[in-house]
Computed example of a mutant assay.
Amino acid sequence: MTAQTYLAYDYPLLSAFWTMLWFFLWIMWFVLLFRVVLDIFRDDALNGWAKTGWLIFVIVLPFLGVFVYLIVRGKDMGRRERTQAHAQQEAFDSYVRRTAAGATHPSSADELTKLSELRTRGDISDDEFRRAKELVLAGHGAGAGASAGGGPGTAPGPADH
């Protein structure tokens, strides 16, 4: 038989299982190492020297450094991660609220389109359209024309004709 044939017989299923287990543990170790390093930089309670000391300890003696860090400071790692996630969620929610609030105010083009439709239907006169258009273009909005008498959305009175 050739060498390739012997390889299949010399590598039992249990060996494949142990290889996969060690590979999985190795990946988990790197995930844990990176989480510890990120937590060192995330913690505002540590000053620069303490962060440097922990980082050197974790890099020079990685297994011992990570295990000691988890024993000494591991209890607060979850709290710091939740605090950061909460702050990110609040920032996102605030951004969404600001963006949505900006979308509720119609643009000048939208207001002019509505004014044009009102004039086309005969709800406002040409003079009322001209005054409301001037207000929209000046940045005061069409709502200000309504309070001045005879703006959009109001029925034309006898004095408007």
Rank of each mutant, 00 (worst) to 15 (best):
W22E: 11
F129L: 09
V37H: 07
A3E: 15
I27C: 12
I40D: 04
D10E: 14
G153I: 10
K75E: 09
F57T: 07
M28L: 11
I56F: 08
W22S: 14
F30K: 06
D93S: 13
T52R: 15
Q84L: 09
F67I: 11
R73Y: 08
G53E: 12
V68F: 03
T99L: 04
S107I: 01
F63P: 00
D110G: 01
A155M: 06
T5L: 10
H105P: 01
K75P: 02
F92W: 11
I27A: 08
K75T: 07
A91S: 12
A3N: 15
H140C: 03
S94G: 15
L70V: 00
G153P: 02
F67R: 11
A132Y: 01
E117P: 02
L118F: 10
L135T: 00
K114Y: 06
E81Q: 10
D127T: 10
A8H: 15
S107G: 00
G157Y: 03
N47W: 05
L32C: 11
W49N: 09
R80C: 03
L112R: 03
W54R: 02
R131P: 01
G145R: 06
A138Y: 02
W49S: 11
G145C: 12
R131C: 03
T104V: 11
L13A: 15
Q88V: 12
D93M: 13
A146M: 05
P106Q: 04
L61N: 08
T113R: 12
S107Q: 01
T113F: 06
A8E: 14
M20R: 11
S107H: 00
D39A: 02
A91G: 12
G151Q: 01
D44Q: 13
V36I: 05
A146R: 10
A8T: 09
A91C: 05
